[in-house]
Design a protein around this nucleic acid. Structure first.
Lengths: 335, 335
DNA sequence: CTGAAAGCGCTTACAG
DNA sequence: CTGAAAGCGCTTACAG
């Protein structure tokens, strides 16, 4: 068992309040007292009991990060950044995985472990705007990576439509005219998939290119195997195409693999671009062009915003748009 | 602010103790009482305050998972499994990243957030056996992925020597005789790198093959770029080789990329195998053979063991060896 | 600049 | 089977 504030107080010959003042770095403590107390703290190897502090003060210093799956590199990289920056701000991050299942996302939304977490960073996949609006809990929440434009909650994300437009425009700038898209949602729910589809179609129209329905391939998730399946499907359709915009880098990894297996040359025959900017894309063969969201900025902005809310910042829902960047690699390089 | 036990008690017309009994599922509560209390709980949307429970009972239901970096797929996949299984066992996981830096690992070892976490799952990289032995805290701890054979702590890991031997034997079984190894530690600290080196050399000797120092390439970490650099270095050495055992899959990803760039055929010219069994290896070109630890088993075994310790299980340090499996893919397939 | 006291919400012996 | 009371370790007004 560790030492308590009282133990330290006794040893230093001061009151509990004074020890608390020292521990919490208050200014109005005489230097001599501070030194004495600090010595007692060191000798007893005192560590504050966070549960007690949380019970009393209502703050735990813990925030939850709820995301679909850590195995998805984009989320792992994002989680990395969140955990890192939160630590810098003195917060600890607890992870929840929902697998993108609506039921589990609803549980997160309803607020598990309230009283223990100060706030929630949430990257939902299946939740609708209607679900969000029904939220009861008052635990501060910031949404990540969603931006359908009308969530009744704070959110931090890239402009998905603009990002998808940029990806498509890049392929167009290469002179490609039959540009396929992999990652259309299978079900008609809201979400980033539709926003990316919107950006894709917008860019095609702006360039006077036809939007061909057969070149829009649906997938269930954004995984490598989804990408591989979608690619096989696209090839089976027999429709000609000279470029592909994959709604995620992982989809692109799967698609690349299938093309290489079948002797399709990338980028000569087909130029490819993804979206996510994951590290893995630097090492595929060929390396993968992508639209890279500034994940560090997403993480920092979200944590900062959440801490403001936890601190009592009152204002209508806030939206912070994070920049993204076109990264041209071999899969769409000049060939 | 939410309802407290007392609020529920008042509403249900019973004592706080009775509500507590219902909440915690004790048996000796009259059915009528239980029903009444449950109704009050539902009406008030009561949720237990975990901080209070933790302060009083000494248990928080939170365990920490400390690992180097979530961006490394192996750790992300492991974290995924830990978070998932911990949830199944009613525990929440909080993540610490050390970047494999000894100073930060020492902080983890010394016990941050004691009083808040019930136990620690720790995958250290730079810590020595000596560091471990000096640990003061009594928070239960289970080590992951380390197994130098003499930690003064519980650990759960594959048999690294055997895994490396299996990888090397596989290459030997292909008829390869000049087998390089990428991933020798740069500094002479303990750790899995040396265990894998040991397994590699053991297999060579057992097969009567020469252990060639020039074919042992050192790296700083186990990343893709480390693998690429090591590969370039190996090629520059001019030494002939017909196979490579990479101490991690990520190293192999980097090495593969460099070989393909230079027109070296895998597996025809050089057979390659990694170690880690990450998902990414299914999609490289060619797909990557590997030794795959059973990550689910590591996660479950570790969480179970930790919970036993938290529950008061007293015994000398325990070691649980988890199975690994040879997965043959294109990079070492029959060509 | 420092102290004495109340109370955050829960669980746990102790009674009955 | 249920109740009244103490106390986990901390912070926060309130005094002085």
């Amino acid at each position: 068992v560790g030492a308590s504030l009282r133990d330290v107080a006794t040893r230093a010959g001061v009151s509990v309040k004074t020890v608390s003042n020292v521990v919490n770095g208050y200014v109005h403590v005489a230097d001599a007292t501070r030194t004495r107390v600090q010595a007692a703290i060191d000798e007893l190897d005192y560590r504050p009991n966070l549960s007690a502090r949380s019970l009393r003060g209502g703050r735990s210093g813990i925030i939850a990060l709820a995301l679909p799956d850590l195995r998805v590199p984009y989320f792992a990289e994002l989680a990395r950044a969140v955990v890192r920056y939160a630590e810098e701000r003195g917060q600890t991050v607890l992870i929840d995985q929902t697998d993108g299942e609506r039921d589990r996302e609803l549980v997160v939304l309803a607020g598990i472990r309230t009283h223990l977490i100060d706030g929630l960073l949430f990257s939902p996949l299946a939740l609708t705007v209607h679900d969000m609006a029904g939220r009861q809990t008052r635990t501060p929440m910031v949404l990540l990576g969603e931006r359908t434009g009308n969530e009744p909650a704070d959110h931090v994300a890239i402009d998905n439509v603009a990002a998808a437009t940029a990806a498509t425009e890049h392929l167009i700038s290469l002179g490609r005219t039959r540009i396929a898209a992999i990652g259309y949602p299978r079900e008609s729910i809201e979400g980033t998939g539709w926003l990316r589809a919107e950006g894709y179609e917008k860019a095609l129209r702006a360039a006077g290119l036809e939007v061909v329905q057969g070149l829009q391939v649906r997938t269930h998730w954004f995984t490598r195997s989804d990408g591989a399946e979608a690619m096989a499907e696209l090839l089976e359709s027999g429709l000609p195409f000279d470029a592909i915009f994959c709604f995620s880098d992982l989809l692109a990894v799967g698609a690349l693999r299938v093309m290489l297996e079948r002797g399709i040359r990338v980028p000569e025959d087909v130029a490819v671009i993804g979206l996510d900017g994951i590290e893995e894309g630097r090492y595929t063969m060929p390396s993968l062009s992508t639209i890279a969201p500034d994940k560090e900025a997403i993480a920092c902005t979200a944590v900062d915003l959440l801490l403001e809310r936890i601190g009592g910042y009152e204002a209508p829902s806030v939206e912070r748009v994070i920049p993204h960047q076109l990264v041209v690699r071999e899969s769409s390089g000049s060939a």
